[in-house]
């Protein structure tokens, strides 16, 4: 029980700090801490495979990607002078209103979920004992019952890969015959 509260507190605290942080680099690192805590919770739930995959995929791959992008863009802090000026000229009080409305909406969501969960009696849902799932059973299920979904996932990854390359490619204008000729799109 204590480890559940410990991991839960770390996960919630780190996630809160992620959205309270002004510096994106810290946000990314705090999110990694939150994922670590979630991974601990998965171990408590007898899912060591998911716990390790969580670290490998989320912390080891996706977050590195985020960190890379933050560093490449040199971590621009939120609301630079420029942004504020631009926004003031465009839509005066809109941004603040959206924030308050959005925050209220999120709080409402939490209240609603909480209410729904406590309504049918908080005592229910004790876990059955001895349900340790091995990697073997997961693999067997994944490659038989979920084989089609698994294959579709590989197509999804391929599409994402191509999409990312196409989107992030910096177009070479100087090379002979390569890249797009300077047109109206390159003008700012």
């Amino acid at each position: 029980m204590t480890s559940f509260y410990l991991f839960g507190a770390v996960a919630v605290g780190a996630s809160l700090l992620v959205i309270a942080q002004r510096n994106p680099v810290y946000s990314v690192l705090l999110l990694i801490a939150s994922f670590g805590a979630l991974s601990g919770l998965y171990v408590l739930l007898d899912a060591p495979f998911v716990a390790v995959i969580q670290i490998i995929v989320y912390a080891g791959a996706i977050m590195v990607l985020f960190l890379f992008v933050v560093m490449l863009l040199n971590a621009p802090h939120e609301d630079t002078e420029q942004d504020l000026e631009r926004m003031a000229s465009r839509r005066p009080a809109a941004a603040g209103g959206v924030r308050i409305f959005g925050g209220a909406l999120a709080a409402g969501l939490l209240v609603e979920l909480w209410w729904a969960l406590t309504k049918n009696g908080g005592e229910s849902g004790v876990f059955p004992g001895g349900a340790v799932s091995s990697v073997r059973t997961i693999g067997r299920s994944l490659f038989t019952d979920y084989a089609f979904a698994f294959e579709v996932t590989s197509v999804l990854i391929l599409v994402a890969m191509v999409g990312a390359v196409v989107l992030a490619r910096r177009e070479v204008v100087t090379g002979l015959g390569r890249g797009r000729p300077p047109g109206p799109r390159t003008l700012k």
């Binding site: 919630v12 992620v18 959205i19 919770l41 409305f101 999120a106 939490l110 969960l117 849902g125």
Partner: peptide
């Protein structure tokens, strides 16, 4: 219990939602 995990998950989900809006 299962309920504890679901509550924790609800809190995390709300934090995520708030982040997107705020």
């Amino acid at each position: 219990t299962l309920n504890d995990y679901l509550v924790l998950s609800a809190i995390l989900f709300a934090i995520g939602t708030a982040g997107v809006f705020v």
